[in-house]
Every structure is written in structure tokens, then in C-alpha cells.
Amino acid sequence: MRVGILALQGDVREHARILVKLGAEPIKVKSQEDLTDIDALIIPGGESTTIGILIKKYNLDKAIREKHKRGMPIYGTCAGAIVLAKDIIKSKQPLLGLADISIKRNDYGRQIDSFETELSIKDIGRFNGVFIRAPTIKRFYNGVEILSEFRNNPVMIKQHNLLITTFHPELTDDTRIHEYFLNMAQEYKQVRDMQRDIEKNPYL
């Protein structure tokens, strides 16, 4: 399985490390061409303003939205969650706007307020949540499924082919959330492979 990691800026290496552990092939995505042959995409942690500016600069926004429309799974962690949100409270930075959530940046405070805490995640169980200058999901709309909450705010959600965590599983050795995401990617790959076979041989 080929999993793209948006590599404009951020903790790309940490996601790649976990994907390799799980037997998937990480592909660094910096341009539209890099998106052509991947089964899923991860938007890593980093600075959401920087990532947003560069997504726009390299016209990756349209290309990623198109992939999303076709059903490709996308997983965003922290800055990735911000970039995927429909709107950011009190900010006009560039976004992909794919997930029906309103997000608030740095809502727990500055670095001194960053924290680790034990979360309980649906279908996964207990998980060490690493929150670094993390945002909170303030509102959510149609079709958003909450997989984990902390202090009455969703910290992990799923909406169709989107997966979002406001924390960083890639900074731990726990691979279960990435496995969960690879299962989403597997389903998409099967459908895509089937469509390809049909295109190649219409009489199949």
C-alpha cells in the first residue's frame, strides 16, 4: 500500500516510521504529480499556517479536494486537522475545508500547557494522547462520528473517508490508529483496483 505524506513541512519522518513498521510504503508528497499513484494521504503535524500557505502556492488544494471527492482516505494530525477543517475560529489562513468541523487553534494554551493524557478511543481502547499546542474541535456538523473525547471536546473524529486527531499518535510507538487508517485505505484500494480492472476489461 502506497501512503502519501504531505511533506511541505512538519513531522513527516515520524509518520513514515510508523507506516514502515506496518508494512506500508510512505510517499513524500510535495507536488500534484506526487498525488497520482497513492492509496491514502496523511497531513502531518507542523505549523498549519505554513502548510496552508504552501498547499495553496503549489495548487495542491484543488488536487487534494479532487482526491477526497473520489473517496481517497485522508488522515490529519494536529496541524493536519486544522488544514482539513471547514473553518478556523478567528482566523483566515488558507484551508482545505473538507471536514465539517469548526476548529480553534492553540486552545489549550501555549507550549507550557502542552500535555500527555490517557484517552479512550472507540474500537481501539486506551491510548496515550500527545497534545502539542493542540487545537480543539469546537463544533461539528453532518455525518461526523466522534471516536474519542477529552474534556467534552472531540479529539478524534471520522467523517466518511476523513480521519482526524488533534493529538500526535506518530510521536508514540503505538501503531493502532495508523492501522485503523490503513484499513480505511485498504477498502478504498480494493474499490479502486476493481474499477481499474473494469476499465481495462469491460467484459469482466
Partner: peptide
């Protein structure tokens, strides 16, 4: 939760990469 852990300190630097 726990604050000021080395993972959190090092983690912020990881986020600045690139």
C-alpha cells in the same frame, strides 16, 4: 494530564521540521 515531559519538548521541535 502531564505537562513538560521530554516527549512534549522534543515533539514541538519535530513539528518545526522542514
Amino acid at each position: 494530564g502531564s505537562t513538560g515531559t521530554f516527549r512534549l519538548k522534543k515533539g514541538l521541535a519535530e513539528m518545526l521540521k522542514g
